[in-house]
């Protein structure tokens, strides 16, 4: 564990708490992509299968349980409790275009051709693009509630913090994880447009609105 990774994990944790807070307080999942949330459930379940057979640390164990549990809870809230507030007609990104290529990439790029390693690779690739249905939806509506933009910012910043963590680990421990690094840089890259609007508008107290 190092400072950058801890900041990244705390940012990830914060993003989920902001998301649940938004759903609970506004009693609505308006502006949220169900597809993106469903992809996160797939990401966490395929990556954290090792919970059942490998012990890393108490921190690791608790965080994994939290990510699986909270993503399932979010999906439940969106699907059942606040279902009427979700508008599927604007959540139209085709996730087949994400899941298919990620599965193929995982079969090609993995550290060992075993079920658990291929699923791990798959989860890394899928996570890097899982935000696309959400960003696509944002693009279509052209605006977002401020709380939703805080959620997206925290979620984007989380992976960005992992980048200095990998550089730090390379110099201190000599470990390199090329799959996670390439996917992590791509994932952070997808947020650049969003970050630009977030930092120039939302952080200055303005509403999140995309130029027409």
């Amino acid at each position: 564990m190092n400072f950058f990774r801890l900041l990244g994990d705390l940012s990830h944790l914060a993003s989920i708490l902001i998301l649940l807070h938004k759903i609970k307080t506004t009693r609505s999942c308006r502006g949220l992509s169900f597809k993106t949330q469903a992809l996160y459930v797939a990401v966490f379940i395929t990556r954290y299968l090792d919970l059942t057979y490998r012990w890393v640390s108490l921190y690791n164990f608790v965080m994994k349980l939290f990510f699986i549990g909270s993503s399932c809870a979010t999906l439940y809230l969106m699907r059942y409790k606040y279902c009427p507030t979700h508008d599927p007609s604007i959540d139209t990104f085709k996730i087949e275009y994400l899941v298919g290529p990620c599965a193929i990439l995982a079969l090609i790029f993995n550290y060992k051709f075993s079920v658990s390693e291929v699923l791990w690779s798959f989860s890394i690739f899928l996570e890097s693009v899982a935000i696309l249905p959400q960003l696509f939806m944002l693009q279509r509506t052209g605006e977002a509630e401020t709380i939703t933009t805080h959620y997206l910012a925290a979620l984007g910043i989380y992976r960005a913090f992992y980048i200095p963590n990998w550089i730090y680990r390379y110099f201190t421990e000599g470990v390199v994880d090329p799959i996670a690094i390439v996917a992590g840089i791509a994932q952070t890259g997808l947020y650049l447009d969003f970050f630009y609007v977030y930092f120039t508008k939302v952080m200055q107290g303005e509403k999140f609105e995309l130029p027409a």
Binding site: V56, M63, Y111, W120, N165, E173, G174, V175, V176
Partner: peptide
């Protein structure tokens, strides 16, 4: 296992 497949990150 080589170092890079430790998967000790989240």
């Amino acid at each position: 296992l080589p170092h890079f497949i430790q998967h000790d990150e989240l």
